[in-house]
Design a protein around this nucleic acid. Sequence first.
DNA 1: GTACGACTTCAAGTCAACTTGAGGTCAAGC
DNA 2: GCTTGACCTCAAGTTGACTTGAAGTCGTAC
Lengths: 148, 148
Amino acid sequence: MKFLDIGEVVQRSGLPASTLRFYEEKGLIASVGRRGLRRLFDVEALDRLSLIALGRSAGFSLDEIGDMLGLDGPPRIDRARLADKADELDQTIRRLTALRNALRHAAECPTPSHMECPTFNRLRQAAVARGREARPPAKRAPSSRSGS
Amino acid sequence: MKFLDIGEVVQRSGLPASTLRFYEEKGLIASVGRRGLRRLFDVEALDRLSLIALGRSAGFSLDEIGDMLGLDGPPRIDRARLADKADELDQTIRRLTALRNALRHAAECPTPSHMECPTFNRLRQAAVARGREARPPAKRAPSSRSGS
DNA sequence: GTACGACTTCAAGTCAACTTGAGGTCAAGC
DNA sequence: GCTTGACCTCAAGTTGACTTGAAGTCGTAC
């Protein structure tokens, strides 16, 4: 069985080494040993990394993901948890859809000021009413590494 | 015209005073004066606050919102910007929908391990491929104030 | 006239998920 | 045998949106 140097994992996963070390420190992945100082990973680490990427994109936190993958050992993913997350995504999607419709409407609405548009105002009220409940939707890449 | 003490704004907006001060400091809202030390707001501040809430829930950052509302003066919302955001939301919604479907599938899929489910694996690959491009979707309330 | 409580300021802390920097190590190539 | 460069550790910094804490002020009720 072939072991991967962190550099290879970086190449294959697209993640920076700092992230891999960070994930290791959090117990999300494990290196199988060292060669000198250097970490060696086995190929399964790439699977775990892809699961982590998937989990992140589904909105799981790293802690949740660590929970689901097991701090070590073979990934064992809880189906109920997935279903819950799917439900949660459903909610988000509905909310975002309503918002998009309203945004679209506001963008095309001919009233001189948005403040006079009933649709827009209903939306505003809804946003206030929801208050602190919902957080903003997906963001772009956070770091400066994001350039193509 | 009646002026509102910050406490009233807190009550009516549902936002904590610290947030109102923070928003004022950022130039998102303005107090019209003071009574003693205490800020006085006029009722329009509530409108601005609801716009801010709306903007946040649409995924605008506070800076973007400040930009759109004008650092001061009457809110003047750029329709092109709204349309752009609506498009962006569309993307997000599509991505989230695909994800939800796949999650749902994975939750119901009868293969013994997710790693053997082709749908799940396609999804994993996609998540890796997207790599660092997309950030996770909506989050819950950030603070401990979130209880009902 | 004084105690209370709601406000004030300013600085620092929080959270998540990383990144960055300084300073060190080691295997390999010349 | 020395340089190079990819790796290492550990601590601290970053970002956004706030929150928290300490210490002070002020209007109102008693």
